[in-house]
């Protein structure tokens, strides 16, 4: 059987809210090392990769590898019934056709159980090479969210250019154009507000803002968003979930005709 208890149930709520508009349904894969998911959006332009390590859970048991297909909209409906401070336990029997979500209030005076029907989903698993990137930018998650939101009011795509000490986000639209530059800033006294750039080679790539805005829904999960870019490769946008794992998104670049 599979059983996993997450004391900070809010994490699971935030993860599902961050991905439910991007992917309709997905297989959640559980094995002894943890709980993970890899799924592409229906147009195969972006990919979500979630991994929650077994040791990030208060209790974790997975006797055999299981893949549980769930409709994200249904999962979201159920998790909305959990309070932000509830602990969430997921349970499923081997070969079971449901997964049970148990919500416990901090004082354990309220216990609720919701069963979600599992579904068979054909999913294509992509092999993502663990390559080194030309540039890595770590910036406050809220700042990244604001940049992609603001630029979306002007254009549909963003050109992200990284140099040794700054990252520039630029867009062009019918009403004009916009550029936002963030300089490297390693403020030791305010680590949550730091912007760090690690670069092997200057890089400039163009992406659809619609998807980056969708990725930014993961903002509540982490203080920082980490952008990893390489010439002519998909961008990786990572949100580290302290002590539990990470939620990562890949987005294919716009290609010059």
């Amino acid at each position: 059987m599979f059983e996993a208890r997450l004391a900070q149930g809010a994490l699971l709520k935030k993860v599902v809210e961050a991905i439910k508009d991007l992917i309709e349904d997905a297989n959640f894969d559980c094995n002894s090392s943890g709980f993970s998911l890899q799924a592409m959006d229906s147009s195969h332009v972006s990919l979500v990769a979630l991994s929650l390590r077994a040791d990030g859970f208060e209790h974790y048991r997975c006797d055999r590898n299981v893949s549980m297909g769930m409709k994200l909209a249904s999962l979201s409906k159920i998790l909305k019934c959990a309070n932000g401070d509830d602990a969430i336990t997921m349970k499923s029997e081997d070969n079971g056709d449901t997964i049970t979500f148990m919500f416990e209030s901090p004082e354990q005076e309220r216990l609720s159980e919701f069963d979600l029907k599992l579904m068979d989903i054909d999913s294509e698993h992509l092999g993502i090479p663990d390559n080194e990137y030309d540039a890595t930018v770590k910036l406050p998650a809220a700042e990244f969210q604001r940049i992609v939101k603001d630029l979306s009011t002007i254009g549909d795509t963003v050109e992200i250019s990284v140099t040794k000490d700054a990252v520039k986000f630029g867009t062009t639209g019918d009403i004009g154009n916009a550029n936002i530059m963030c300089r490297q800033n390693k403020a030791a006294d305010k680590p949550d507000e730091s912007t760090e750039i690690d670069i092997n080679e200057a890089v400039s790539l163009t992406f659809a803002l619609r998807y980056l805005n969708s990725f930014a829904k993961a903002t509540p999960l982490s203080t920082h968003a980490v952008l990893k870019l390489s010439k002519e490769l998909p961008i990786l946008v990572e949100y580290h979930i302290p002590e539990v794992g990470r939620l990562a998104f890949y987005l294919a670049p716009k290609i010059e005709d």
């Binding site: 332009v45 990919l47 993502i128 998909p234 890949y250 670049p253 290609i255 005709d257």
Partner: peptide, 14 residues
Amino acid sequence: KSNQGRLDSFFGPS
């Protein structure tokens, strides 16, 4: 003009 790339053309099946 630029076209949207697809992930399948960058990452192969695992």
